[in-house]
């Protein structure tokens, strides 16, 4: 590893600046350095006015997604060495408004999330935790999909979300899947109606952009395909 990195850093204050600019900085490297370490080093020692968002630093909270060398990534889980270059361009996550520098406004993301009724509604007849044998396929791959940390990487990578303002996008649809497939939930059909729209599951063109960038190795495309299947089953009256 070389002893320093050449960083091109996106800077923008919508309140003051007419347009964004790039700042060029040299940052010394150290072992196990992640992109989060890079931006923190810059903010602490080189330019204290830089803004970015972070919290847990271990890939659990999903606060620090950035667009690094042409791809959405979690800053805390992206090792500098894995980028295999000394030249690194750091930008905010695409497809979302910018608050300042690398901080985006997640509001549109969560507005769509809320549209699919993301909250669990328990069936009236379920009064206790259900008994589910580990080898039954009752949970299909719900639990795997529930590992989503809502970081927005997939949303930033999705070419459909980029061009269709209405499109619900992979994370909201993935969350919808986890509830629609959950037999304990009382409003599965209602939720399926929300996603069974042109701006819902049918806008996904199965390009797998989302799955390529997911830091949790989730494949939202799979959830979306399963939702499509259920939408068809509903039309022929089989999904209840």
């Amino acid at each position: 590893m070389s002893d320093h990195l050449n960083i091109r850093l996106f800077r923008f204050n919508p309140e003051i600046d007419v347009e964004p600019r790039f700042e060029e900085l040299q940052v010394p490297t150290f072992e196990n350095m992640a992109i989060l370490d890079v931006v923190m080093h810059i903010q602490n020692y080189l330019d204290r006015s830089l803004s970015f968002r972070f919290s847990c630093r271990v890939g659990m909270c999903g606060s620090c997604a950035l667009y690094v060398n042409g791809r959405p990534r979690l800053a805390c889980r992206t090792q500098v060495s894995a980028l295999k270059t000394q030249n690194i361009t750091i930008m905010p996550l695409p497809n979302l408004p910018i608050i300042r520098d690398l901080v985006v406004d997640m509001e549109p993301f969560f507005e769509k999330w809320k549209k699919i009724k993301p909250y669990y509604v328990s069936r009236k007849d379920i009064v206790d935790p259900v008994v589910v044998h580990p080898d039954s396929n009752e949970r299909e791959f719900i639990d795997e999909m529930l590992d989503c940390i809502a970081c927005g990487c997939c949303y930033g990578a999705c070419s459909m979300a980029a061009t269709n303002e209405e499109f619900l996008g992979p994370p909201a649809l993935n969350r919808a899947y986890t509830l629609i497939a959950d037999k304990r939930d009382a409003i599965r059909v209602e939720r399926l109606k929300v996603v069974d729209k042109s701006y819902g599951v049918w806008r996904c063109h199965t390009q797998f952009n989302c799955s390529e960038v997911c830091p949790k190795n989730i494949v939202p495309t799979r959830s979306i395909q399963n939702l499509k299947k259920r939408c068809v089953l509903k039309k022929i009256g089989v999904f209840k």
């Binding site: 909250y119 669990y120 328990s122 379920i126 009064v127 206790d128 935790p129 008994v131 589910v132 044998h133 580990p134 039954s136 949970r139 719900i142 639990d143 529930l146 509830l179 959950d182 304990r184 939930d185």
Partner: peptide, 21 residues
Amino acid sequence: AVHELEVKVGCFFDRGEDGRI
């Protein structure tokens, strides 16, 4: 609290061989 997390909030904790939490 755990009952509420499962039944009201919709969490699903890992199950053992007997199908219980």
